[in-house]
Amino acid sequence: MASRGDQSKASLGFLTVIQDSDYGLLGGYLILNTAGRPEEFHCTAPVRPSRAQQILYGPTLEPYLYGEQIGRTLAARSKAQPLVLCTDRGPALAVREHVDMPVALVLPGDGEAGDGATASCESHWRLDKAHGRQPPLVAFRLGKNQLAVPATMSCDREAILQRLAELAECMDLAEPFGRIREAIEEARRGGQ
């Protein structure tokens, strides 16, 4: 892992999953250098859960698919070891169990949750919709970005603040996800 002082080689990882009604789930993982230039891009073939998985995994299906099946696979293909892995998909936080770096959920908009507050129940990043049991998250600000980490990994918060301190003011951590979605679309068109 690159140290903080070694910013010239430092990179950031961005993971997202898009749900397509025709294809299923498509994962994309973008590695950017600190100037925002792409270094690596990895994307999955469509992933469709089986009926048995849907029944038996129940509310844990999305974390399994996003975090373990897609997130872990993509992270394993990367040559880089990013400072932080960012995702805009709540279920993808489950990838934290399979990677050796802090994972942050990038919350949309200008949320007002302060340091240490539990993030509000936004449906698009709740982990467990079916049972209404949202794993507690710890939300915090980094520059103009609103981030959250699982409460069970609250130590990641300090690591993220420390590693991204120099980049915080000028970074928009939500922007690269748009690039990933465009790239997935481009790759899908290219594969047809």
Binding site: E39, S50, Y57, Q69, A187
Partner: peptide, 14 residues
């Protein structure tokens, strides 16, 4: 069978 299925990945390095 609900075992883990290998996910195909395409990688690009710039």
């Amino acid at each position: 069978g609900i075992g883990r299925v290998e996910v195909a990945v395409r990688s690009f390095f710039f």
